[in-house]
Amino acid sequence: MKIIVFIEKDPRTGALRDVSIELAYKAYSLVKPFQGEAVGVFVGDELPEDCEKAFQFGLHRLVYYLNAKLAHLHSIAYKNIIQAMIEAETPDIVLFGATHTGRDLAPLLASALKTGLTADCTQLHIDEYKSRGPILYQVRPAFGGNILATIITPEQRPMMATVREGVMLPPETKPQHPIRTEPFALRFQEQWIINEFLSVAPKLTKINFNRTHIIVAGGAGVGSRANFRLINQLADAFGGEVGASRAAVDFGFAPKERQIGQTGAVVRPKLYIACGISGSIQHRAGMDESQKIMAINSDPQAPIFSIAHLGIVGDLKEIIPVLLQYLKEA
């Protein structure tokens, strides 16, 4: 069993993206029972500066291709290089982060390799399938988050999937493999570079929900942008991050990058406090694996209460100031 994982770098910091570390560990755990190999592939201008982390988290080997012209995502160039790597390695499985880069490249490769690709997986496991031996079972939310579908690619190889960031967190104890990197030999072709990047502006606001243990999220029930300050204050008082439902984002109470749910971030903090959020299926898709969920909602019938562990029924505009008061006193 050999799994290739696409390794990505955060262009703003030069460090590995979290999802790449998550995938390295996931690939390692999937191949372990087979004494298989987890191989990273990287394409870019320079290796991520903290590459060794991928090995600490279980990668066995990293194959890389560097060229100064590959600082940005040139889809055709990246696709041709990764395709050559896959053809040389003949893996059983290829995993990408479900990032904007991964979701740009993975379909190009699946098309070129004429194989199956499952988008946005939230769970992966390997199991026997009829007489075909072990295959990858790929679980993903579908149909607007209303169902969970398990997708397989029984015949074609490699089996390909993109995986959401933040859903396959590695545990504290790591395998700590030695660093093994290999350059990949392939003649670079100028005609692979078609687009011209006129400028790139780093986004400063990408919130790292995975590093925080408490999230306080506000929804439409917060009522106004001014009231949303209460959510910020409560998050501050707990030392946590601020999240939002899509309705809160649509109303302009909170910026889009704070959205949690099927089309936002997937989070699993130790404590999630949902204020004025009804608990739609799309919102729950992003937070229902939180260890503890507390809900503040004026409607005792709100669906959020059916997944919450703690609940306060009432007007958040009255309740949150009281909470803040107590937190300050303590």
Binding site: P154, A285, A308, G314
Partner: peptide, 22 residues
């Protein structure tokens, strides 16, 4: 190449809710 192997409805879990009044 892909097949849908299984479909599950997402159902609400939880149930052990501790409710506080105001």
């Amino acid at each position: 190449p892909t097949r849908v192997h299984k479909i599950e409805n997402i159902t609400l879990t939880g149930g052990d809710l501790e409710l506080y009044n105001t």
